[in-house]
Structures are given as C-alpha cells and as structure tokens.
C-alpha cells in the first residue's frame, strides 16, 4: 500500500465519527419527517398511522381555477348590478368551487378578458402563509441590507466613541426575539396604552386608536418593522467585517488619481464588499424564510408564516402527517432559494 492510499484511509477513519454524528442528528430526523409526511399520523395520538401517499401534499398545494357565471336578472335577462357598489354581480365562489372529492376554498377572485374567475385552494391558509413569508422575506432582507450597509459605513469611519457606538448598536440583536416581540406588541397595542397610538393621538393625527396587529394591511408590515429593527445590527456587523478587509491603499491610490467619494464607493467599496454582502444575504434570507417567533407571538392564528402554520397544524390540529409535509415543502423552498443565491452570486468559487 502506498503512502497516499494509507493517508486516505486514515482520513476516512478520522472522518467516520463526524459522519455518524451527522447521520444521527441531521439525516435521520429529516428522513423521518419525509416518511411521516406520507402518513396520517396524529400528534401525541395512540392510533397507528396509515400510509396515505401524496394526499398530504395534495391537500396543501392543490389549487383550481373556476369561472364565475354572471347572475342573470330574471326580469331583464341581463346581468344583475349591485345597487350599492354599482358593480356587476357574479355567482358566489362557494357555489362554484368543487366540493367532491375534495372541498376547495376561495383564495382570491380576478377578472380576465371580461370574465370573472375564482382561484381556489384546498388549504388557502397555507398558500397565503407562503405568500406572507415571501413578502416578509423579500422586503425585510432588502431593508436590512440597505440600512445595514449605511450603518456599517458610518461606524467604519473614524470618530470619537466609535467602540461604544459599535457595542450599543448590537443591543436589539442581543434581545431574545420573543421578548422583543412582546415589547413591540405593547408598543403596537390597540389602545392609547400603546406607544404608536399614544404618539399619533398626541399629534392629533387620529380620532380612534388603530389596531395595528389586527388590521390585515398592517400585520405583515408590522412584522417587517420589528425584524428590521432587530436584525439590521447583525447585517451591519457582517458588512462591517467585509469593509475592514478592504485595504486602505486602494482608497489612497484612487484619491491620488482624483476619484471622488461616490466614484470610490462604486468602484472600490461595493465590488470588494460583494462577498461579504453575499454571505449576509444568504444568512438573512434563509433565516427570514423560517420566521416563526414573530408571527406566533404577535399574530398567532390570525395570520400565518410557513413555520407558524406548520406549528399550529402540528400542536393545535394534531396533524403530524400534514405538518411534516409542510416541513418538507418549507425545506424545498429554502433549498431553491439557496441554489438561486449560489448561482447568482457565484458563492461556490
């Protein structure tokens, strides 16, 4: 046996314990979730689970589009017009959507080429949860990146008390999410006991208090606001580390050549910062896609993220099979995002 071969065997032997640990703590639970997702297992139940194939996935993802027929007025033979809104009346979606073999529920209605359609889903709450999570992820990560970059640039420059500034900046990140979620819940409270309502009231901007956390149009933006508050420091820190890697000589050389501040930022800082921003983006995006605590604490069952839907399906409705399928779908969505990032940013090089 030559040296190379012996070394390789030794390497495998040394790696074996780590591989075993990985198998036990990562692959086994993952495989188990995959397996459970094909059954109708009940959480904390005594009955044996049945194998039901892809039924759980069908239940979560099945959608259908049906045309809504116009409601014809019997006297005139023309389509009825709603007296209050002045809009033409169509059949109600619940009458049109299929009930057998599976019941579909209205997700949304839309018009196309003069006809009215309804988009139905077997589990509209899950489809909405995917939408909520994507909306949350894209907006919050975008804002965090922009603000994080600005803050990193500021604390990277020389000024008095810079060390203190860098330390205090991290406070929101250090607070446990559930604690900060509760704190924000009080600030968003629906009476004048809440900070925002008190503020708006003080300036005479509102007559009645705004229930931020129950108004649908405010719910996800409120979650985004909290997440941006909490995670921007983390983003700033990662970008700051990248900034400090850039050699000062480059700036000096550029200055000698007569490049202005803006020019220096776009030709030196930003290109050299790309790897750091890429890492930060991947981190935050994958993290945001799994968002659970904010939605669970603040919105509970009035609006779901993918992970909080998964949680309630498991522990409240006790559908372990269905929630496992949810877990698998979340896994796949996150996987797709990871691949897109790797392709776009060339991380593997």
């Amino acid at each position: 046996m030559d040296l190379q071969k012996r070394e390789r065997r030794l390497a495998y032997k040394l790696m074996a314990p780590a591989m075993v640990v990985l198998l036990v703590v990562a692959l086994y639970p993952l495989g188990h979730v995959f397996y459970t997702s094909f059954t109708d297992r009940v959480f904390a139940g005594a009955r044996d689970a049945q194998f039901i194939g892809l039924e759980n996935y069908h239940r979560l993802l099945a959608v259908t589009v049906e045309e809504l027929p116009p409601v014809i007025d019997e006297e005139t033979g023309e389509q009825q017009i709603d007296e209050e809104t002045g809009k033409p009346v169509y059949e109600r979606p619940i009458r049109v959507l299929p009930r057998q073999p599976h019941a579909y529920r209205e997700l949304t209605t839309f018009s196309l080429f003069g006809s009215r359609y309804v988009l139905g889903a077997r589990t509209p709450n899950f489809i909405r949860a995917i939408g909520n999570t994507l909306y949350f992820t894209i907006v919050s990560v975008f804002l965090e990146t922009v603000l994080g970059l600005l803050i990193a640039l500021v604390v990277n420059s020389e000024f008095k008390g810079r060390g203190l500034m860098r330390a205090t900046m991290l406070v929101p990140w250090a607070v446990i999410t559930v604690v900060s979620a509760r704190m924000w819940e009080w600030m968003f409270a629906s009476s004048r006991a809440g900070f925002f309502n008190m503020l708006l009231d003080r300036f005479g901007l509102i007559d009645r208090s705004i229930p931020f956390l129950t108004l649908r149009s405010f719910q996800v933006p409120a979650m985004i606001a909290i997440d941006v508050w909490k995670t921007t420091p983390f983003m700033a820190l990662l970008i700051l580390a990248g900034l400090q890697m850039i050699p000062q000589e480059l700036y000096e050389a550029a200055r000698v050549d007569g490049a202005g501040k803006i020019r220096r930022f776009f030709t030196i800082t930003l290109p050299l910062l790309k790897p750091a921003i890429a890492v930060a983006l991947v981190f935050r995006t994958l993290d945001a896609l799994r968002v659970f605590d904010l939605f669970q604490v603040l919105l509970a069952r009035s609006r779901y993220s993918m992970a909080s839907f998964n949680y309630y399906e498991l522990v409240a409705n006790r559908n372990m099979g269905l929630s496992s399928a949810t877990g698998v779908i979340i896994f796949i969505i996150i996987f797709i995002f990871a691949i897109i990032y790797m392709q776009m940013l060339g991380v593997e090089e």
Binding site: S190, R208, P211, L213
Partner: peptide, 11 residues
C-alpha cells in the same frame, strides 16, 4: 367591532 367594542377586540 370598532363600535361598542374596541377595534382591537379581535385580538
């Protein structure tokens, strides 16, 4: 809701 009861009653 939002009349005799607060608008936030739904939470």
């Amino acid at each position: 809701v939002g009349d005799i009861s607060p608008a936030g009653i739904t939470a």
